[in-house]
Computed example of a mutant assay.
Amino acid sequence: MSTSRSGGRDRDEEGRARNARPRDGLGRPLPYGSPGVERQPEGVVRTPAETVTEAQELLDAGRPFHAHEVFEDAWKSGPDSERALWRALAQVAVGLTHAARGNARGGARLLRRGADGLAAWHGEAPGGLDPAAVTRWARQLAAQVDDDATPVEAATYAPRLRGTA
């Protein structure tokens, strides 16, 4: 995606507002011209297995904000029957992002909201996901963040999306 600055705002080729500022590993905007972490491309259609694999790699690398973008693509492009699941996963990824940034209250809230969404899933999950394992992880991390507002190390606390170590 290429962008241009128009009227003080970044715009894409269609003229839509798109923030082109570089970002750090937790998705925080950096000053223009700063080196940043490469952003995930938007609007990529992946299979469920590809989504889970790519998101797990990003989570393991301490980049939960970027994993959230992968889940958001699945949420927006996937079948209606899976949207709530992908949205819940995006919420837990953003919850981990906030917890790593030191926003304990927002992190815990999003982790619990995502856990509630995952707990509502019934049946076999796409892409080898283990919603029950991620639900347990999210609730445990939310409780920890509530008890200790110290920022967590995102890579250290990354969930196992397929429920294996």
Results as ranks from 00 to 15, higher is better:
142 A>L: 02
52 V>L: 07
55 A>H: 09
117 G>I: 01
144 Q>P: 08
41 P>E: 14
128 G>Q: 09
97 T>K: 01
153 E>G: 05
148 D>Y: 08
34 S>P: 04
120 A>E: 13
135 T>K: 09
66 H>S: 12
90 A>T: 08
98 H>L: 13
29 P>Q: 08
74 A>E: 10
65 F>T: 04
70 V>Q: 10
75 W>L: 14
124 E>G: 12
50 E>T: 02
71 F>V: 06
31 P>Q: 11
125 A>S: 08
133 A>G: 14
107 G>F: 01
66 H>E: 12
57 E>I: 01
40 Q>R: 15
57 E>A: 14
48 P>V: 06
150 T>P: 09
33 G>L: 08
93 A>P: 00
82 E>L: 15
78 G>L: 09
82 E>W: 15
105 R>K: 05
52 V>P: 01
146 D>T: 13
132 A>M: 02
128 G>T: 13
133 A>W: 06
128 G>P: 09
70 V>D: 05
37 V>I: 14
93 A>L: 02
58 L>Q: 08
73 D>Y: 03
91 Q>A: 12
137 W>I: 13
39 R>P: 07
38 E>A: 14
49 A>K: 03
152 V>W: 01
72 E>R: 05
41 P>R: 15
154 A>I: 08
63 R>K: 14
83 R>Y: 11
48 P>C: 04
149 A>K: 10
62 G>M: 07
136 R>Q: 14
147 D>A: 15
125 A>R: 01
108 A>W: 03
108 A>V: 03
108 A>I: 03
107 G>P: 00
97 T>L: 01
99 A>H: 00
114 G>Q: 03
134 V>D: 05
147 D>C: 00
122 H>D: 10
136 R>V: 15
66 H>K: 01
68 H>P: 06
71 F>P: 03
61 A>S: 13
71 F>G: 02
113 R>M: 04
35 P>Q: 05
74 A>C: 13
144 Q>S: 15
89 L>E: 04
151 P>Q: 08
54 E>W: 14
110 L>Y: 03
108 A>L: 02
154 A>Q: 04
55 A>R: 10
73 D>K: 07
138 A>C: 11
75 W>H: 15
142 A>R: 05
65 F>E: 13
105 R>T: 05
29 P>W: 06
141 L>W: 04
119 A>K: 09
37 V>L: 13
49 A>N: 00
141 L>Y: 08
49 A>T: 04
62 G>E: 05
67 A>Q: 03
146 D>E: 15
112 R>I: 07
135 T>Y: 09
43 G>H: 10
87 R>S: 13
142 A>C: 09
152 V>C: 03
110 L>A: 05
81 S>T: 15
95 G>L: 05
129 L>F: 12
69 E>R: 12
105 R>M: 00
105 R>W: 01
147 D>F: 00
46 R>L: 13
